[in-house]
């Protein structure tokens, strides 16, 4: 065995070892909330994303703090965004404050790519760069994005941003650059290794627990149980896009 191959095989060995022991201890150590990420659902690196899953997110606006920005900061850190909020700056997730004009009731909620089942951005993209992965995550393939911005015209949620300036020192896991359109990816790099999106993790770590991420097609997922337990809506339901992100409490 040559020098170079070693790290790979060590890694593979570590993974095998872990799977053996991990499977044994998983049941005992996993918190109930993340149980649905159990070994049975994990995807090997060489395995493609499958349409047996559809990732979704439930946001409980009653738990979402007015003025709390934890999800936004976590997203910026994870994806290497500056956090600036000028008209030309990228914002993958933003806090939206809404006030009912008739009743004066005020609410705060995070808004980002809603990962529609029928995404208008994917319909309109001339090159097919705007795409929906088999597991329902809507992404921009920057290799074929020509920067025409038609998807930004089409998105009913203003979820997308255009990169107006050259970028350097990107997060190696989150390539992004000038002249392409981008948006929330559900932190696909994390989801692919069975982690939660950064916003969800931050929300829960900080104890707000306003966001539940999971597989919409798994009836046993915490997400589906929560969806079943209380009424939820999709924003702009009139468009019948069947969003992957749903809201409770609006």
């Amino acid at each position: 065995m040559n020098e170079h191959d070693k790290p790979n095989s060590v890694e593979a060995q570590a993974r095998r070892d872990f799977l053996k022991t991990g499977a044994l201890v998983a049941g005992a150590t996993l918190a109930p909330g993340v149980l649905f990420y159990g070994v049975a659902h994990s995807r090997a690196p060489e395995e493609a994303a499958s349409s047996d899953k559809r990732f979704g997110l439930l946001i409980d606006t009653t738990k979402c703090g007015d003025g709390c920005n934890d999800c936004v900061s976590a997203c910026n850190t994870e994806n290497g965004l500056t956090g600036e909020t000028g008209p030309q700056d990228s914002q993958w997730i933003r806090k939206v404050d809404i006030k009912d004009l008739r009743t004066g009731y005020v609410q705060s909620l995070p808004m980002m790519c809603q990962h529609c089942e029928n995404p208008p951005c994917v319909d309109v993209c001339p090159t097919g760069a705007s795409m929906k992965r088999a597991d329902g995550i809507v992404l921009v393939d920057r290799h074929t994005c020509i920067g025409c911005r038609y998807c930004m015209m089409a998105c009913p949620y203003k979820a997308r941003s255009f990169v107006h300036e050259p970028l350097t020192d990107q997060n190696p896991e989150v390539p992004r650059g000038k002249g392409c359109v981008e948006s929330c990816t559900f932190c696909v790099q994390r989801v692919d290794r069975d982690e939660q999106p950064a916003c969800v993790e931050a929300c829960n770590t900080q104890g707000h627990n306003a966001m539940i991420f999971g597989d919409l097609k798994d009836p046993e997922s915490a997400l589906n149980k929560a969806l079943k337990a209380a009424s939820s809506i999709e924003v702009r339901a009139d468009l019948a896009l069947n969003t992957g992100v749903r809201y409770q409490g609006i």
Partner: peptide
């Protein structure tokens, strides 16, 4: 919270 992550950590 999720020991499974450790599997991919070395890489």
């Amino acid at each position: 919270s999720s020991p499974l992550i450790a599997a991919t950590q070395p890489g």
